[in-house]
Amino acid sequence: MGKVIPANLNNYPRIGDRPEQQKLRRTIAALDRGEASLEDLERVQREVTREVILEQVEAGIQLVTDGQIRWDDPVTYFARSLEGIRIAGLVRFFDTNTYFRQPVVEAPVRWQWPVLVDDFRFAAEASPVPVKAVVPGPYTLARLSVDRYYSDLPKLTSAYAAAVREEIRALMEAGAQVIQIDEPSLVRHRDAVEVALPALAGLAELERSDSVRLGLLTYWGTLDQNLDRVLELPFDFLALDLVEGRRDLEGLSRWKLKGKVFGLGLVNGRNTKLEDPAELAAAVKRIQDSCGFPWAYLQPSCGLEFLPRDTARRKLEIIAEAARLVSE
């Protein structure tokens, strides 16, 4: 039986319902009123990052993230640092009731400085278990941007990929051992693989030490006929949403015993209904039987920020419990 590691995916609720879990919200509001300073915000962001890391660890998660506490949204935090980009108005993030600010590409896209490295270093120091670094994927960045410069989706994707590559290199230099590239747009467009594949192949082939695991994540849909082509890329793992994309389970069996490592997104990250750990463990075992993975991550189907904090924590506990049941 391959090992199953309970993992968090990317973001995590930054506030909760208890008063002591509201400090980030209160500090940002105070900053807006001119009653708090940027230093106050920095201090609170650090505190909250530490708290959400410990919360993941306490829940039994063995691969945590920094919760993306500083991220305005899944796009802007990285995109706003790039040359050639202006950040514009609010746009709905896929089919959610949440928003992101849309990047407008006005000149050649160029990476300038590492955005995520300090966050990674801080999280790694704060965490007793390994921390995964997460970067936005080039195809999703391109799809969610207004392109006023390249007027060509493959070219823009490739320009973003060059920037993402520099960020990944910087993360590896800082000691990141698990790095995940988030590509939700990959499951939303028919031509996704044609357009994204060359750029993603470039990233998958990035030179790295044997200890580094560089993987790809999709969520909120299925890869269907594109699954095989994505699995051919030399990433170290492929993380899938097996709630909304459960159709992909069938395709995974074609890769039985080929050494592929999967992130199994079996816990619904956007519904409060709690999974049963025993049923979850049984589902993992069925996948293990059909795919024969050497090892896998068990994780939420999408970021947990779409849930209330208490529910998010319960979901992580369920993941940890199911992983334990699988290993029994």
């Binding site: 506030i15 909760g16 319902d17 919200r25 928003y99 409060t272 920020e305 209330p308 904090r309 529910t311």
Partner: peptide
């Protein structure tokens, strides 16, 4: 009604269940 979830920036709301 759920606990608080974020819609954007520093805006949160309670979502129906």
């Amino acid at each position: 009604i759920s606990g608080l979830v974020r819609s954007y920036g520093n805006r949160y709301y309670r979502k129906p269940i």
